[in-house]
Every structure is written in structure tokens, then in C-alpha cells.
Amino acid sequence: MNKENIRLRVNKRDYQLEIAPNRLLLDVLRQDLGLTGSKRGCDDSSCGACTVLVDGEPQMACLMLAVSYQDCEITTIEGIACEGQLEPLQRAFCDEGGAQCGYCTPGMILTARHLLAHNPRPTDQEINEALSGNLCRCTGYVQIIASVRKAIELLEKQESGVAAAGQGG
């Protein structure tokens, strides 16, 4: 099979790669770019462990042909911490026990990030629905919901901090 020269934009960095057209984005991320945060859980497109953000929207990298996503902005779990600081969702998952084995966590966090970007104050039902494509075999989901709630709190604090700073200045 002929390889193709492609350009991928991942976590705001551009990569030039030579890959076969039947390579899945999940494998390219993990094997070629060394970004092993995205996991292969089921490989039959049901668990969400391979979730990445495509132009901000959570999608499954185990279903994506890498050559078909050259025009997109891809974000993996490695791309959300800012200047060495954990993102509020990451912080909250640590604090609330939202991660046990951690296999589902990158997908959970990316999906939750999309939810909070569009709906900063979701109800529990809305959180449940948004995360219903991401399976967890460890936590029983209770701590995951608690983590998302905690992240909302952290984000609100951050915002009011910024607002207060803004007023002060």
C-alpha cells in the first residue's frame, strides 16, 4: 500500500507524517506521535476510551482514518493542561477520586470539557447524558459526576477571581 504524506494538527502543533491510508488516528497518536493518553479500550467503537476533541467536539479516534482529519484541530488529553498547570477538570478528577485505574479518564475529561464549554452549569442529568458514551469499569460513575461538579466549582472560582482582579485593576 502506498503511503501518503499528511499534515496533522494535534494540540496546536503541526506534524508532517508519512503514513498508510488505513491507519487509525488512535494508532498514529499513540505509535507515531507518542501521545499515549488516548486509550484503546474496546476497539469496537463502544467505550469512548479513545475520545479526542475534533474542532472541540468529542469523537472516537478508533473510528477515524488519520488521512481524513488533516483539516481539523485535534486535541488529546496531553493538550489541555496549560503551562504545566492541571486544567480544572484534571485537578477535580484527582481530588474527587474520579480516576481509579485511569483508563477511561482521558476520554471522560475531554467529553466533560466539551460539555462545560457549551453548558457551564449542567444538571446531573445533563452530565450523565453527556458522558453516556464513555464507559468506566471502576468508579461506578458516582465519583466521576462528583469530579465534574467539583470542576464546575473550580471554574466558577477561577472566573470570579478573574472578575475580581479585573475590577481591582
Binding site: 467503537s45 463502544s46 469512548g48 475520545t51 475534533v54 467536539e57 468529542p58 469523537q59 472516537m60 473510528l63 477515524m64 467529553t111 447524558e129 453527556a130 453516556s132 458514551g133 464513555n134
Partner: peptide
């Protein structure tokens, strides 16, 4: 249909 992730795709 399917799940939120699959509906996005």
C-alpha cells in the same frame, strides 16, 4: 442514536 460521541461523527 448510539451515544453522544457517535452522534457527533
Amino acid at each position: 442514536v448510539a451515544s453522544p460521541l457517535l452522534r457527533n461523527m
